[in-house]
């Protein structure tokens, strides 16, 4: 069962923004350069021992957000409070030497692509221990083997190259590398989406076990709502650079308040279960993220419930239930 969040958050990101200049500029350009608002004033917390899910379609900015939180790219604005420091003040290029580097790690979607094809599984797992913990020789080997064992990776496979490993084994190498330095926060970027169902369960169980054993918190990015619902305590729903709804995963998915969340939930087919009743469907593509109108809902134009007010006034925050927030003029306030 998901345990409730306790004490102070491990990660507290406030009003994080990422804007990229696009096109324009140049010698003869007039007026301001158009800006792509990849992430627009997002605030989120991850509590100790909590698993927070992050869902949204491709291009909604979840990749940019996770890379900022992992300190791989710089923020344009906002703060990232972690262990009492504002990490957003440290440039990403110099973050490699920061003491918090070992405490924030990441597991990638494409396990194969995230392991250097020239190096063995051992080298991959050893890299963070070498650089961040300064280990070498026998202590290094011991730590690598411990991480591999924790992740259920047979030690005989440590000498293999990524192309000699199965999908599940590569996923285990990626996880072993990420947990080797015993991070406080683990960002999981669609860790099971490339895996078969039978392997997926094993990896999800492994992640659950590692979380309690190593006392980590998870930020879990996924497009598979069934998986998010299964393992996340809380969920954040992103649309076009903004969070449109957040709250306890089960409550949000059982009775979504934001029409976008509703459309997401309605789009998911449930194995072995034919659902009755009308489904909310979305047409078209999202609006352009370049210089979006700050006085309009981002979902306006694609939203089946949208009205004129949605195009001229920024959506207000509503509270559909305990611990929940949604940003919508016309939320679905049904209670399950």
């Amino acid at each position: 069962m998901p345990q409730p969040a306790v004490s102070a958050p491990v990660l507290d990101a406030r009003d994080v923004c990422k804007r990229y200049p696009v096109g324009g500029g140049g010698l003869f350009a007039r007026g301001p350069v158009p800006l792509l608002h990849a992430v627009d004033r997002i605030s989120l917390t991850v509590g100790a021992g909590e698993t927070v899910g992050l869902v949204g379609e491709s291009g909604c900015g979840k990749t940019t957000l996770t890379r900022m939180l992992a300190r791989l790219i710089d923020t344009t604005e906002g703060s990232i409070l972690f262990g009492g420091d504002d990490l957003a003040t440290v440039p990403a290029a110099r973050f490699a030497g920061h003491p918090a580097r070992a405490a924030i790690q990441m597991v990638f979607q494409d396990a194969e692509g995230s392991i250097n094809p020239r190096f063995t599984a051992f080298d991959a797992i050893a890299a963070p221990l070498r650089r961040l913990n300064g280990l070498s020789g026998a202590p290094l080997r011991a730590r690598v083997e411990r991480a591999a064992e924790q992740c259920g990776l047979p030690l005989t496979l440590l000498g293999r190259y990524p192309h000699q490993l199965s999908g599940g084994q590569k996923a285990r190498v990626g996880i072993a590398r990420a947990v080797a330095t015993e991070p406080k926060l683990l960002i999981l970027d669609e860790p099971t989406s490339a895996l078969d169902v039978s392997v997926q369960v094993v990896i999800l169980e492994l992640l659950a076990e590692l979380k309690s054993r190593l006392g980590m918190s998870y930020l879990f990015v996924s497009h598979d709502l069934n998986v998010v619902r299964l393992i996340c305590d809380r969920v954040l729903v992103m649309y076009l650079g903004r969070i449109v709804e957040e709250g306890p995963a089960e409550a949000v998915f059982r009775a979504p308040a934001h029409p976008y969340t509703r459309a997401l939930v309605d789009s998911v087919a449930v194995p072995g279960q034919i659902r009755e009743g009308p489904r909310l469907r979305l047409s078209g593509d999202p609006k352009s993220p370049i210089d979006p109108d700050q006085n309009a809902c981002r979902f306006h134009g694609r939203c089946p419930r949208g009205q004129d007010v949605c195009g001229s006034v920024a959506p207000p925050e509503v509270t559909p239930g305990t611990g929940r927030r949604a940003f919508c003029h016309l939320p679905l306030m049904e209670h399950a």
């Binding site: 069962m1 039978s198 069934n226 619902r229 299964l230």
Partner: peptide, 11 residues
Amino acid sequence: FAATPRPGLAL
């Protein structure tokens, strides 16, 4: 089927 995540099931 038993290995597939579905709403209402715990890990």
